[in-house]
């Protein structure tokens, strides 16, 4: 490619887009929608991974004791747990304290205990801290072995559930995105094809006077490329403003929800989307050229 002809390629590419205006709009919109969904999905995955990392590095395990175990036995249990290897600390949260916490949350004036039939139905539980995150799984397993303990909760277990759900979302999302990307490629190929037909006489003469193949191809290639890139750019814009305003809302209102606030991570996703859109566009024009541009 010679430098002085680049201007010619760009001019031709934009001329075609103006000529096939509505077709170009359709192609750009399809790419934009596909890229938008891919973007949402990518942000979702990134955030889930982010939360998972937080949960996975959480060293706390909560072990619930059966309700009918007497206090003396519970205190014995505390000693037993403390003697397990890799334990940093064990804190017993007795059921009375649990009830206090509930009163604190819902107000003392309500007769909670009465409503529950006079007996405190809450279990005693232990908050066990491991010394290292990689010990959490083993400690949880050992706690679950203890007959008086009926349930063990810990972050890594949450992570597994999270990823199970994410697996399904990923599956359905991929199918939808594949469909949309296919539609985008098809629409871009059709748009480029219209240009090939509109200019077939010119192309024929170009070939005749000895234009090189790539001299003929470049404008079509660029047309597809720009349609794809432009669609993706629209999606990126929407995602950028959408995500960061969502982030504002979430951090002020639901502060416990840990979202990715690192701009670089978000920018990376947007960059990749833009490149992907351009690639989809280029693919569409290559398909169209192979089929309709006999050079």
């Amino acid at each position: 490619m010679k430098f002085r002809t680049i201007g010619y390629y760009f001019k031709q590419a934009f001329k075609s887009m103006r000529r096939n205006f509505w077709m170009s709009v359709a192609a750009v919109s399809t790419v934009a929608i596909a890229a938008f969904l891919v973007g949402i999905f990518a942000l979702l995955v990134t955030n889930v991974n982010f939360m998972a990392t937080k949960l996975e590095s959480d060293i706390e395990v909560v072990a619930f004791v059966e309700v009918d175990v007497p206090r003396s036995e519970v205190l014995q249990l505390e000693e037993q747990i403390r003697s397990l290897p890799g334990i940093a600390s064990v804190t017993l949260v007795p059921k009375e304290q649990g009830l206090e916490q509930m009163y604190a949350r819902y107000g003392r004036d309500r007769d909670l205990l009465g409503a529950l039939g006079g007996d405190n139905p809450l279990p005693d539980y232990f908050v066990v801290k491991a010394r290292e995150p990689d010990r959490v799984g083993r400690i949880a397993g050992q706690l679950a072995q203890i007959p008086q303990i009926y349930k063990v909760d810990y972050g890594q277990q949450e992570v597994e559930r999270l990823f199970q759900v994410l697996g399904w979302v990923r599956w359905a999302g991929s199918a939808l995105i594949l469909l949309l990307v296919g539609a985008a490629v098809f629409l871009i190929a059709t748009t480029v094809r219209l240009t090939v037909f509109a200019r077939r006489r010119e192309l024929q003469i170009m070939k005749l006077v000895g234009a090189s193949d790539w001299f003929i191809r470049w404008p079509f290639f660029l047309e597809g490329f720009f349609l794809g890139a432009f669609g993706a750019a629209l999606a990126c814009l929407a995602l950028y403003f959408g995500y960061f305003s969502l982030l504002d809302q979430v951090t002020t209102n639901i502060s416990f929800l840990a979202l990715v606030t690192d701009r670089a991570a978000v920018y990376e996703i947007l960059w990749k989307l833009l490149a992907g859109g351009a690639a989809v566009g280029a693919l569409g024009s290559i398909i169209s050229m192979r089929r309709f541009l006999k050079v």
Binding site: T5, Y8, V209, G210, F215
Partner: peptide, 8 residues
Amino acid sequence: AFALEVME
């Protein structure tokens, strides 16, 4: 001119 343009 087109012919010459096309021949770069």
